[in-house]
Simulated scan of single mutants.
Amino acid sequence: MATQTAGKLLCLHGYTQSGATLHKKTSALRTTLRKSLALTFSFPTAPHRVQPFTENADDRESSAATLQADLGDEEGHWAWWTHDEEAKTYKGLDQGMDFLAKVLEEEGPFVGVMGFSQGAAMAAMLSSALERSLLKSSHPPLKFAIIYSGFRAGYPQYDNYYDPKIKTPTLHVIGQMDSIVVPERCQKLVEVCEGAEVMEHPGGHFVPSAAPYRKGVVEFIERCLKKGSEGERATL
């Protein structure tokens, strides 16, 4: 068991969910990360309240996430942004980023970020924003990002998050049977992450809790933290 904390992990929930939803659904993973790395966690709830049922085609996670959020979630239904298909924009994204900048300042520092679905897309953009000083925060770039069922923002105005490629080390966990954020869509985010690692599981749109996938996450974080500490020593 780890004797010294490896740091704090920022955890971002999916569309129509909440911080409490993701906290419940990552119980086994949290236990493993706490025992193996002594990580601590923050599960903020996104700032935009949304209806539990929607036909938002862009997020394509709405119906499944709604079913998950309805199972005992007392915090309501929230999003990091809402898709305005007519205007071809992610309404509220800037406010979502400002909200996370405040979380970073008040609760950080964080060693990394983990996100599910829309939260995974947000995790990638947050990692990029910290690399490029696009965020209203003095927080340093993250050492890693864990992306569960993540996707690339779909409009040209967001290309600055992906070009040049995101340099923060990323692990993309993709469900081979995911019909909400299909593997091909996940792959588009993989392609804009430099040196991205991919771990597939045979299931659908969820955070896999089986031991091999938890072990894979632990090993990825260990590699990132080791690389980060070596880099810090090299600059001394």
Rank of each mutant, 00 (worst) to 15 (best):
L12G: 07
T54V: 00
K25A: 06
A234E: 14
L100Y: 05
G19E: 07
M125V: 15
G204Y: 12
V217D: 10
S149E: 08
T45R: 09
G175Y: 02
T40S: 15
D70T: 12
L100Q: 08
F220P: 04
G92Q: 05
G19A: 04
Q4W: 09
K91N: 11
E85I: 06
E230V: 07
A57P: 04
F43H: 09
D84Q: 06
S63W: 03
E55F: 09
N56H: 00
E131C: 05
G231K: 11
C11T: 13
E85A: 14
K136Q: 14
Q157R: 12
F220L: 10
E200Q: 14
E61I: 09
K136E: 12
H205S: 12
H48D: 03
S42Y: 04
L37W: 10
P183G: 01
V103I: 15
P212T: 09
E200K: 15
P44C: 04
M199Y: 02
Y162T: 00
P208S: 13
H83F: 09
D94E: 14
M122Q: 05
D94G: 02
W81M: 09
S209H: 13
D84L: 10
A101C: 10
R34L: 12
G108V: 12
T5G: 15
D163H: 14
K165H: 05
V192E: 12
D59E: 13
K35W: 02
F99Q: 04
K188C: 04
K226L: 14
E131I: 00
A210V: 11
Y158R: 02
V192Q: 13
S18F: 08
T31R: 15
A2K: 13
A129M: 10
K102Q: 13
S179G: 03
A211L: 15
P164A: 05
L39A: 05
K88Q: 14
T66V: 01
D84C: 02
V111S: 07
S137K: 08
A2C: 15
K8W: 10
A79C: 02
V198H: 09
P202T: 02
L135I: 11
